[in-house]
Structures are given as structure tokens and as C-alpha cells.
Design a binder for these strands. Sequence first.
DNA 1: TTGCTAATGTTATAATGTTGCAAATTTCAC
DNA 2: GTGAAATTTGCAACATTATAACATTAGCAA
Lengths: 163, 163
Amino acid sequence: MSPSALPYRPHNHDACVAQALTEARSICQQHNARLTPTRERVLELIWQSHKPLGAYDILAVLAEDGHNAAPPTVYRALDFLQQYGLVHRIASLNAFIGCTHAGKSHSGMFLICRSCSNVLELTAPGVASAVNTAAAEESFRPDDVTIEVSGYCPGCTSDTPHD
Amino acid sequence: MSPSALPYRPHNHDACVAQALTEARSICQQHNARLTPTRERVLELIWQSHKPLGAYDILAVLAEDGHNAAPPTVYRALDFLQQYGLVHRIASLNAFIGCTHAGKSHSGMFLICRSCSNVLELTAPGVASAVNTAAAEESFRPDDVTIEVSGYCPGCTSDTPHD
DNA sequence: TTGCTAATGTTATAATGTTGCAAATTTCAC
DNA sequence: GTGAAATTTGCAACATTATAACATTAGCAA
Ligand SMILES: [Zn+2]
Ligand SMILES: [Zn+2]
Ligand SMILES: [Zn+2]
Ligand SMILES: [Zn+2]
């Protein structure tokens, strides 16, 4: 078994954020897309932890920033970031999380801890192929696959839930 | 390849509804749960087609019925029906669909057609086991699995989208 | 009856997400 | 550089989805 994944153990999270921002800049440059200050700030906020963040949570922080922002500001930034695969929306939570596989084409699977709220994004090729097989048997042509697993992470399966 | 699944071809849908209601009565009886008129009516409305229905759509029909209903009425009925596995919520649509495997314990996978909106619920044991394997590799204990696949159904892959 | 519990009614409000248009900024051809 | 075109942002209003809190009613049993 692999060692605990990042979200589940102490780590230098500033490095996570820095790397995410660096990659985002690079990806946007490749696509001639403009990672404007607002968009970058939203991405940074989403990466403030490995827990998903709601649009209105983001909005509240922007307000603290002194940024005079309304909901469309946030949703537009989120749309942009999703478009370039920099963040994912977790449908079962109405919240957003930074993509840990930005750039690489992937169909994510999300492990959502009910106790500590941390989310781990996996690539899970086995799952993707099983889904495609099942869909093919019904002659269904998949376009977008949502896989969200709620449960308990390694840290929270034991009796002492993590933060 | 199997022939087209029910939602994708003409069929006697009244039979779908009748069977769903019969099974629901039986399941509720087994659990000493009361399938009250409101709950039964909501279930019937959800089964009016193989397309998912929003809570406020249900509310509107109840109003036409002359039923003086407010949102909590609908959401409470939906909670009840979900609790006994009679309907599922489709997170990516904020909508509800009748369960086609009521009674049998199952972890569903939903094929959602972008064109005609019909939803097919599959059992897909291969997918379930792939998800469990992937989760186990991260020492994650799954509790609830959401798998929603948006795409195009057999009828809508061709150039003439179905209703 | 009486008293208990589950279910429903009612009002208000919270949380999430969108539309439409005007103003500002950036891009790019000239 | 200058000006038109396109992108991005500000802003106000609105739409949709879901819940909280508390009163009332229906079902059921002692
Ligand atoms: Zn990702
Ligand atoms: Zn946890
Ligand atoms: Zn049918
Ligand atoms: Zn279709």
C-alpha cells in the first residue's frame, strides 16, 4: 500500500499552492489564456487547503481583500479555471477544489472525507475503463464522468478524526 | 450487445409506474414505513418519465393538483423516498429520478443523456469494484458512491435526437 | 378519552447560481 | 501611437434550490 497521500498528512502546503500557481501560469500561457489577478487570486484561495471551497466562501474572502466583488465575479473566475482544468467542481458539495493533475488529461475520481472534509483526487484508470465498458454495453457515449466517493480518509477511520 | 434499455425506446410506461408504485408499497410495508398520499403522489410524479424531475417541478404539479404545498412538503417527501431507496438524487442536475432497482441493495451508476434528458440507472458491479479497489489503495473507506455520466444515449448519438 | 409520535402546514430565510447591460481594460491591425 | 474590436470586469437585479423554526393535525395505543 502506498504511503498516505498528501491531503492526509502534514506537509508544506505552501509548496502545493506555489506549484499550482506556477503550473496554472504555464498552462494559461500555452493556451493564450489570461490568468488575470482576480482569476489567480481565486485559484490561490481554492488552493488554501485540500478542502473544497464554496463560491460564496471565496466571495467572502475577496470582500475581506477589499475587492468589491459580486457573485458573477467569482463564478466567472471559476468557469475560466474549470475550462482550463485548473479546478474541479464537486457536484455533491456545490464546492470547488484545485486540480492536482492540471495539464495532464485525466478523468478524476474524488475521495471526500466526511469527517475532515479533505478531498483527494485520483486518476483511477481502472475506474474510468470500467465506466466506459458499462456505458458501451448500453451504446451510451460518455462525455463527462462524475465520480465522487464520500467516506472516511485514513486519518479519520481511526478514532481520532483529523482537522 | 444488449437491446436498447427501457428509457431509450417506446414502451408501456404506465407499466413502469404501476410496478414502481407496487414495489414501493411493498417495501414500505416491510419497513413499517408509511407511504402517505403525498409521498406516493410525489413518487408517482417522479416516475412520470425516465427524465429526472426537480423539486420545484414537483411542487408546481402538486399546486395544479390543488394541493397547497410549500417546498418543505416536497423535500420531506423526497427525503423519505430516498431513505427507502425509492428515488435517487442526481447531484449534477439537482434533480430526482425513480430507482429502477428498489429493494435490491445496489450502488447505482447513472447515464444521463445531454440531448433527450433520459436517465438510465445501471448496477455496474465492475465499476463498483474498481472504485472500491482504488479507494482501498488510499486506505479510504467509502460510504456513498456517486457516479453520474453525462453524454449521449443510443437514440441521440445518431443525427436525430429523440424527445 | 388521553397522551404520544409521526407527519404536515406555514412562514420566513438561507444558500447557490444566472442574466443583462454598461464600463473599463486589453489586443491588435493599421 | 491610434482607434476599432474583443475580452474582462462592475454592478444590479433576479432565479433556483434547499433549509430552519414553529404551529397544527393525523394516526395510534394505553
Ligand atoms: Zn483534476
Ligand atoms: Zn478525514
Ligand atoms: Zn418507462
Ligand atoms: Zn437521448
